[in-house]
Design a protein around this nucleic acid. Structure first.
Lengths: 198, 198
DNA sequence: TATTTAAACTACATAATGTAGTTTATACTT
DNA sequence: AAGTATAAACTACATTATGTAGTTTAAATA
């Protein structure tokens, strides 16, 4: 355990929070160190004692949230992976629930003035997770019809695509509803879902 | 028809090409107007006669390519939309083929130092296209199992996700192979594809 | 050939950055 | 509570990119 000087904690907290607010206001690119330190009411020179530049600050902010995400979404038992009839799996529920609980952060990152890199970073994180999940599910090795990596990227992109859409439309649907739709699409495929067949 | 002064044409061509190269080398964010004009061997002041700033230049570069994409992918007949047995639809083929034909551009944009915004812009373009395509396909209004907009975003994200993966792995597979995998996933869904069922 | 227009060149004012040295305030230790 | 350590503020400065204005040179068009 390392006890961090409370002055340091306070400074970093101020900087991070001012930073996220500014992203929402004018977008990452337009932000200067001047802006951040001004809004945080921290001397500009002090910024450099904590972060190299705004990219460093962004990196650390993103990393925090994604680690948090994985911890919250990871299944506790094998049960959590399996969808019951008419009920999506616990993992899907947790995923949408987590995004909902941190909606201010996610809305900022995905929004109008958001940080496009965040989506990329989140993809990498989710890909890792989906990959492990598929391994878990297919203990008995059936013949796959499509290479695993292709499935991983397909599923990940589709999931994050739905989350993005959900955020863009101000989260009108409930987390549970979104989880259900995603589960259905993955089970019967989008073509059958569109045609009402199956 | 507007005839553009050849000097203007040359200048813009130089700037755009230097710009794309630089994106590949050091990433969009790190690029300065100085860099671009230096590499293009154009006076820095002249840059401002053509573009407001590097964002303006990026915008125009992206817009060009995406309009080009839609024109090349759009189906010529209703036939082109339908997948024959074991053969993906012509639209899917055209999509992967187009990316392949412009692989230098796409590889740069999606790559290590790429422009994350490009993916977002491409998504919007493809969403529009998928939306129209679904309307075409479901002339007879069946009962959809999932709202149309959700399907649109699911399909778009999944398709671009596969393209991204394909690019990241240096396009080892052929355009036709990728089109086939995508077609299959959309037909039977990723779960059946993973389990080998269906 | 004369005229128009683009690009180069020169110069400058402004703003952000990154770093160094010094002072003040806050936290920790004995 | 007093003394020490350390963080943050403050001041100053050198460097770099930006954007704009005015002038000269070169190229395209009529």
């Amino acid at each position: 355990m390392k006890k961090i000087d409370p002055r340091v904690k306070k400074t970093r907290r101020s900087l991070k929070s001012a930073f996220v607010e500014l992203i929402g206001e004018k977008g990452f690119d337009a932000i200067t160190i001047q802006d951040i330190s001004a809004k945080a009411e921290i001397n500009r020179v002090t910024f450099y004692q904590h972060y190299q530049d705004k990219y460093d600050l962004l990196e650390k902010t993103i990393e925090d949230m994604l680690q948090n995400l994985i911890q919250n979404v990871s299944p506790e038992s094998r049960e959590d992976l399996i969808a019951k009839k008419d009920e999506p799996s616990v993992v899907f529920l947790n995923l949408f629930q987590f995004v909902y609980d941190h909606r201010i952060f996610f809305t900022t990152m995905f929004g109008e003035n958001g940080v496009p890199t965040f989506q990329y970073r989140m993809s990498k994180t989710v890909q890792q997770f989906v990959s492990e999940t598929i391994e878990e599910l297919t203990l008995t090795v059936h013949e796959r019809k499509v290479p695993k990596e292709i499935i991983v990227h397909y599923v990940t992109a589709a999931s994050i695509g739905l989350i993005t859409y959900w955020i863009e439309t101000d989260m009108q649907y409930s987390p549970r509803y979104m989880a259900k739709q995603l589960a259905l699409l993955e089970k019967i495929g989008p073509i059958n879902a569109a045609l009402g067949t199956h």
